[in-house]
Nucleic acid binder design. Structure first.
Lengths: 206, 206
DNA sequence: CCAGTTATGAAGCGCACGCTCCAAAACCTC
DNA sequence: GAGGTTTTGGAGCGTGCGCTTCATAACTGG
């Protein structure tokens, strides 16, 4: 037919994702994208159409792959509580240990804050990602409830949403808080999940 | 001495805050700032020094004033649960009802996601705001515990951090979720705070 | 009312933005 | 190979960026 492409499209999207992830949509220039992907502007625009479309592709890529890491942790070994804790500790550590040039936080959250309000397409992808994470969390919560590890007086879906909001809030807080405080927050979330000691008017020592 | 200013500095900061709040740091141009404040670029730069400094002033202004709205709700009438619920419902409604030109979400969260990683000064102000909100929540949580409304087997500070993370996560989710789901998430958070029914191995119906 | 000082508006600085154009190159089919 | 088709690199389009400059306006103390 004609001259074939000299690059791997998926690899390019991956590189673009990293750049958008690090600097946000507005903070990333087409120059940055050309540098990180190795493509010239003509190839970039011929293949993807423009900055916005490439951003959307990167976001979908995150939905497909980077979310997988979280799924993996949630599907890992150990009790439900240990798995949720692993998810949160992992988030805190990667957020805090991120060097200057590393990606910061969760790309979907970044996109939700920066772009979802102004771009319905972004909003839709972000929502799909949120729903997927909620589903993965729900599986773990259900397991915890089944094992008597978590309280069962709140239905699984509701409890899972509570965990997700606490998890996402944690990732917001991790942008400005210290590790000690964040770990305390994780402990707090897990504590509210476990069936607590029976209610007493005041837990006075004997 | 000399010619006095023709504008109210505080009013200008307020206008700039609105613009940064709506469009983010990178998404706001100096032109936008001149338009919203009514100042010429020379006045803006003579008074504040530049875009970044003005952003910091706006962020500090948010810390001083816009946080007050949340404080007010938390210090309002009703039980602790009602007040926390009011805070969250208020957040959801303002986030969802925001028109195209309205500010979206919480400015401190926006700043945390967009700018805190790259700017230590931003990070510091954001953290102060986070700490302040945590403190206000802690007061309400303590009241709820004192009234026997909330569980007391988790210490106040820890429980407050849990509420804060759930609250901030809710504000992230509100960028992409529908109201129904968000209200369910609020219910979930409040449910985990209340002293639950005594633990049973399995809540089987008789 | 004048000298001194600061704020203002307008013009525009150099630069980077998102993106386009096009001749040359690289490939496939025949 | 020749002809046709697509990709590629590079120059550069118009525009808007953050910010500066400067003559002029507006005020104060003496």
């Amino acid at each position: 037919m004609a001259r074939p492409r000299q690059f791997d499209e998926e690899r390019v999207i991956g590189a673009a994702m990293g750049t958008f992830w690090r600097h946000g949509y507005e903070g990333t220039s087409t120059r940055d994208l050309c540098d990180s992907t190795g493509l010239g502007p003509s190839s970039l625009y011929n293949t993807f159409g423009g900055k916005r479309q490439l951003y959307l592709r990167a976001l979908e890529r995150y939905h497909d792959t980077a979310t997988a890491e979280q799924m993996e942790i949630l599907a890992g070994p150990g009790s439900a509580g240990r798995r949720l804790r692993a998810l949160m500790v992992h988030a805190v550590d990667t957020d805090l240990a991120a060097a200057e040039a590393d990606p910061h936080g969760c790309f979907a959250i970044n996109a939700a804050i920066e772009a979802a309000a102004h771009d319905p397409d972004v909003k839709q992808v972000v929502r799909r990602t949120f729903d997927r994470v909620e589903g993965a969390i729900r599986t773990v919560v259900a397991a915890g409830q089944g094992a008597g590890e978590f309280r069962s007086d709140i239905d699984t879906r509701t409890l899972a949403r509570q965990v997700q909001s606490a998890y996402y809030g944690l990732r917001v807080l991790s942008r400005a808080q210290d590790r000690r405080t964040l770990l305390s927050t994780i402990r707090a979330t897990l504590a509210t999940l476990s069936a607590p000691v029976e209610r007493t008017e005041a837990t006075a020592a004997p």
